[in-house]
Structures are given as structure tokens and as C-alpha cells.
Amino acid sequence: MFSDERFFDFERMRGRYSEAAFREFVSLLNDVAYTELPLRDASGRRFAYIRVKAGSCAKAARILMTHGGYARPYPFAAMAEEIVSSLALEGIDVSFENVRNILNGSAPSGYCENLAYCMKLALDFISDDANVITERNAEKLLRLLEPPPALESGRTETETPAALREDTSGGNVHGKAGMSENAGKISDFLQALTDFVNSEDDIDELLKAAAIHFFVLHSRPIGSRSGLAARMIHLWVLARMGYHASLAVPLSRSVNAARAEYREAFTLVLRNAGITGILDVTPFLSFFAREVYGKIGPLRETGESAERFAELMKEGKITTKERELWEFVQSYYGAEEFSTKTLERDFRSAAYATVRAFVVKFEQLGLLASVKYTNKSRYRAL
């Protein structure tokens, strides 16, 4: 039974084997296989996972421990993609360009962009190293992500499946009211969250962050927008654990690309708990190890261009304004092409002649590549 390809689906396992064999299987899981987590849901059910079935995150951990040296708190291009993908998982459509502009200081317009702005405020909060994970700070973060009632009243129903939008399995701490009206339950949730985050244990840290993701998603502390909170807290936990590049990698892009598997893993944990009474989060952790952490590749900010730029800085060949422009290009455009006109417009504090001189010089230095079109050139960072 332990090698069955449907190991994670207890409902099918129970149908495939005799009742006695299945009961013995569950008993063995409890006695031998489960590693208990110090979490309970609102119904008192305990959390656990199977270490050998959860997957390996060693490669992703090495990449996320690096730091590209970007001067801004986070690269705009990467985190704009994070916001767009996280909102897409809630059935909310907002353009990448508009979100990136919001991160760069533009005012939001309409319900969807205001949600993106809430996420920008949350990113600003978690990217500040001074904001360690405490109950008070966790509550602040949730309040940044909880849309004001006036904003919520104008929204349309999302396409988010019921399994994620309305978890009725007994773990909900939110109820039908907001955070203030559920202060007691929210307080218990915040204490459990921060105690687990700050506990010393031998759980793989990336898997621990994924378990916290599930805990927030299941607990629904801010109701229908708790998915946004779960994914933001996931990033916060990784950043505070020392995985600095977690704010340079749009993890939600991979989640959104495998959204069916994400929802199935979440639902499977709840279905299994209905049979065993235990929230075995192994399917959810396995999903993240395979489909999210397993998809992380080398960071742009740690490649040959970064080394070349650092050498030029040491040699005094880069001016302060050129450094600012280069950091902006890396953060705002990533691998995307841009023109001198768009760079002048987006950067906002350099004359066109300065921008033009910058792209010419950095192309000669091998840090930018130009792409020739009929009557103009566009550039991209190497």
C-alpha cells in the first residue's frame, strides 16, 4: 500500500483495499510515518506530514539563498508577475504593465488595481527586514491585504473554485465577518502561526513555508482573499528565514501554471482529513516541491552580467546615475525589451540625452543587447 501510485488519495485507497487493510495502513501512518506539526485547525484537528513522501527542495534552497544585490527592496518585474499570478488564482484579471506601474508609484484605478495596490503595500512590508514575524506584524500584514468594505462592495464574484473560496471543512477562523468581528479566533490563529514560524525544528524550511501556506489558506483569516494572504505570508516566511531571493522569484507564476494541481492538492488534504481526522499536508508539500520549488532556475541577478557590472563599479567606470539606471532596468524590465523613450518615461528622473548615453555605453560594455527594428532600436539587459 505504501508504494501504491494512489497513495495520497485515501478515498481511492480505501476502495481498492479491504477495510481491515486500510485501517491498518492508517494506523501505521500514525505510529510510524507521520511527523506531527504544532498546528491545529479551528476544529482541533492536528497537522502532520510524511517526510519521505514530501519531496526534496535542496536545489531551490541553494538558489533562493543567493542575493542578486538589487538595490531596490524587490525587482519590480518579478514581483509584478507575482501579483498578477496571485490575483489570477483568485479569478482576478489585471495587466502586468499596470501592476508594474503601481509598484513604480502610479495610482491604482478600479477594484482589481486597488487589490494589486494592497499587495504592493504588503510587499513593501515584508521586504523590510525590520518587520520580523510576530503576532502584531502578522496582523498588520493581514490588514494590508484585507480589502476595505467599500472596495469589496463593488466587486464581482470571482471564478475561484469553492474549495479555495469557501473552505467549509471546519478550519475557517474568519466566519462571515471581518477580522475585527472575529478577534478571538484571529488571535488564536496568529499565535499558532507565529509560534510555528519561529519554532526550532528539523523540518525542511522550504516545506515548512509551504505548510504555513496551507495553514493560512485553510484557516481563511481574511475570508475570500485569504489565498492572497497565504501566498504573501509564504514569501515573508522564506525571506525571514534567509532565502533573500524569494522576493526576486515569482513563485505564484508556477502555482498559477499548475493551478489545477494546486487546487487538487489542497482539496485532497481536506478529503483525506475527512476520513482520518488528521490534516496530512503531504500532498500539498509534494506539489510545492515538484511544481513550484522544482521549477526555480538560476537568477538573472547572479549571472555574468552582475559580475561584470560589479567589476566596472570597482574600477570606477560607472557613474552614480548610470548605476541607478542599470538597477532600474534590471528591476523594472527584467528580460523584457525597452526603448530609450520608455526608459526615460518609466525612470522619471533622467533626461533623454542621459538615457541615450547610458544605453550606448552599456551596450558597448556588453551589459545591454540591442534589437534593431525598421526605424528604431530596443534594448534588453543581458
Results as ranks from 00 to 15, higher is better:
Glu327Phe: 01
Ala353Gln: 14
Ala310Gly: 05
Tyr379Lys: 12
Leu365Val: 06
Thr354Ile: 08
Lys317Asn: 12
Thr319Arg: 02
Ala351Arg: 15
Ala335Arg: 15
Lys376Ile: 00
Phe309Pro: 04
Leu325Phe: 13
Leu312Thr: 00
Trp326Ile: 01
Thr319Ser: 05
Arg380Met: 13
Ser339Phe: 03
Phe362His: 07
Gln364Val: 10
Thr342Leu: 04
Glu324Met: 03
Thr374Phe: 11
Ser349Lys: 14
Gly366Gln: 13
Arg356Asn: 07
Lys321Asn: 06
Arg345Thr: 15
Thr320Met: 02
Glu363Ser: 12
Leu367Arg: 02
Leu325Trp: 08
Arg308His: 01
Thr374Glu: 10
Ala357Phe: 11
Arg345Cys: 14
Lys341Arg: 13
Ala310Leu: 03
Glu363Phe: 01
Glu337Leu: 11
Ala306Pro: 04
Lys341Tyr: 13
Tyr333Gln: 13
Arg345Ile: 15
Lys321Phe: 05
Arg380His: 14
Val359Ala: 04
Asn375Trp: 01
Tyr352Gly: 04
Arg348Phe: 01
Thr374His: 07
Glu336Trp: 09
Glu363Val: 04
Arg345Glu: 15
Ala335Phe: 09
Leu368Glu: 03
Arg356Ala: 05
Leu325Ala: 12
Phe338Ile: 10
Arg378Cys: 07
Glu322Met: 01
Gln364Ala: 11
Glu307Trp: 02
Lys321Pro: 02
Arg345Trp: 15
Lys314Val: 07
